[in-house]
Design a binder for these strands. Structure first.
Lengths: 214, 214
DNA sequence: AAATTTTGTCACTATTTAGTGACTTTGTTT
DNA sequence: AAACAAAGTCACTAAATAGTGACAAAATTT
C-alpha cells in the first residue's frame, strides 16, 4: 500500500487528490469529519490549494458530491429488453440491486445519511436524480400496467426501497439486530432479500386478482 | 410566548432547562448544533453550569438521550387484551402507530438520524430498548403463531418498519417525493399507510394458505 | 538558460468553540 | 443580621479549526 504518487506538480491531479480525500474522509469519519485541515492532510497537500482550486471547502465538497454517480446504472444495467409481466421480475431485480449497491458501501451509506440530515443543494440533487431515474421506470413500465392501481404500486415499492435503505444504514453503525434480523450476517441479508421478493410476488398476485374481478 | 420563568435560583430547574435546551437544539439544529455555548444560551444560563451539574457536554447529552422514552408506549398502549388472529390486527396497528409517532416528530427523527450516524453508547441504548420492546411482542405473539414461518414474518415486518423510518426521515428534510409519493402531504401519508396495511394483510393471507397446504 | 508563470508550502492571523478560576448574587442556617 | 453555603455570572485561557500573505520550488515559455 505504498502510495507511489509520481513526483512533480500537476494541478488536475492535485484537484483529484483533494476530491478523493473528501470521499475517503466521508467514508471513514462521516460528513462531520470533512474539515479543511483533515482533507488537506489526507490528500497530502496544503490546505491553501483547497481555496485556490475550489474557492472554499463547501465548493470542494459540492464538486465531490456532484461527481458521484451511484444511481444512473440502476436504470441502464438491468431494464430487461422486453417487459411482459408488468415489471414483476424487473421490480424484484431492481430491489435486490438497490440492496446490493448499498450493502457494505460505506461511502454511499454515509452520503445518504448526510442527505437525510442536511438539506444541501448538491445532496438534494443526488436525491432528485435518483428520483428522476425511478420516475422513468415507473411512468414507462409499471404505471401503464397497473392502471388505477399505479399509486398502490408506487407506495408499496417506495416502502420497500425505503426499508432497504434504512436497514443498510442501520447495519452500518449499530452492529445490531433489527426486529431480530441481523443483516450484518449473510443469513440475515438473505432473509431480507427473500422477504422483499416474496412481498413483490404477493403484491403482483393480488393485483392480478383484483384486475380479474373488474 | 413570553417565557415566564419564575425568578429565583434552583438547581434542579436549571438542570432541566439545560436538558430542555439540548432537545430544542437537537430539533432545530440537529446533533451537530449541540454546542456548549449554544446549549447554555438556549437555556438562558451560563455554560459553566453544564460542567458544574453534568461534568461535561457529553454527559449532559447522554442524560438527555436517556431521559427520552419514545418507544415504551408502543408495547403498552395497544397490545390488545386477547390475540386471536395471530397478531394481524396488532401488527397493522403497531405499524401505523410507529408511523404516527415519527410523523412530524422532528426531535425523534433527528435522534434516529443521529443514531444512524454515530455509534454513541446512549444512542445505541435507545435502539436496543426499541429492539427489546419489539422482541417481547415477537416472541410472545407472532413467533408462536407463525411457527416455522416466524423468520419470514420478522423479516417482512422489519422491512416495513425500516421503510416507515426512512420515509419519515426523508420527508423531514427533502420536502420531496419518494417514488413519486409525497408524504409531506396528507394524501401521500394515507397512500403509504394503505400500502402498509395491504402488505400485512397479503402476508397473513399467504401464510394461512401455506399453513393449510402442509 | 533567463524570464515568466504556475504549483505548492509555510508560517502566520482570525474565528469559533471548549473549558475554568475568581467573583457576585441569592438563599439558608445559626 | 451575621455567617455560611449554594447558585449563577463574568472574564478570561486554551484548543481546535478556518483562512491568507509572502515566499519557494517546479514547470513552461521565450
Amino acid at each position: 500500500m505504498t502510495d507511489k504518487t509520481p513526483p512533480g506538480r500537476n494541478k488536475e491531479r492535485s484537484k483529484q487528490q483533494l476530491l478523493d480525500a473528501v470521499g475517503k474522509l466521508l467514508k471513514t469519519e462521516g460528513f462531520t469529519g470533512l474539515k479543511v485541515n483533515d482533507i488537506a492532510a489526507t490528500a497530502g497537500l496544503d490546505k491553501k490549494l483547497i481555496y485556490k482550486y475550489f474557492g472554499s471547502r463547501d465548493n470542494l465538497v459540492d464538486e465531490y458530491i456532484s461527481s458521484l454517480d451511484f444511481w444512473s446504472n440502476v436504470s441502464q444495467d438491468q431494464a430487461p429488453p422486453v417487459i411482459t409481466d408488468g415489471g414483476q421480475d424487473f421490480t424484484k431485480h431492481m430491489l435486490l440491486q438497490q440492496y446490493d449497491v448499498l450493502d457494505g458501501n460505506d461511502e454511499l451509506q454515509k452520503l445518504m445519511m448526510w442527505g437525510l440530515y442536511e438539506s444541501r443543494k448538491s445532496l438534494k440533487a443526488v436525491a432528485d436524480e435518483r428520483e428522476a431515474v425511478g420516475e422513468v421506470l415507473l411512468t414507462n413500465i409499471t404505471d401503464p400496467f397497473f392502471g388505477k392501481f399505479a399509486k398502490e404500486y408506487r407506495s408499496t415499492v417506495g416502502i420497500l426501497i425505503a426499508g432497504i435503505y434504512y436497514m443498510n444504514m442501520y447495519a452500518g453503525v449499530n452492529c445490531n439486530t433489527f426486529c431480530g434480523i441481523d443483516i450484518t450476517q449473510p443469513e440475515g441479508k438473505q432473509d431480507i432479500k427473500n422477504a422483499l421478493v416474496n412481498l413483490v410476488d404477493l403484491f403482483y398476485k393480488d393485483i392480478e386478482a383484483k384486475k380479474q374481478e373488474g
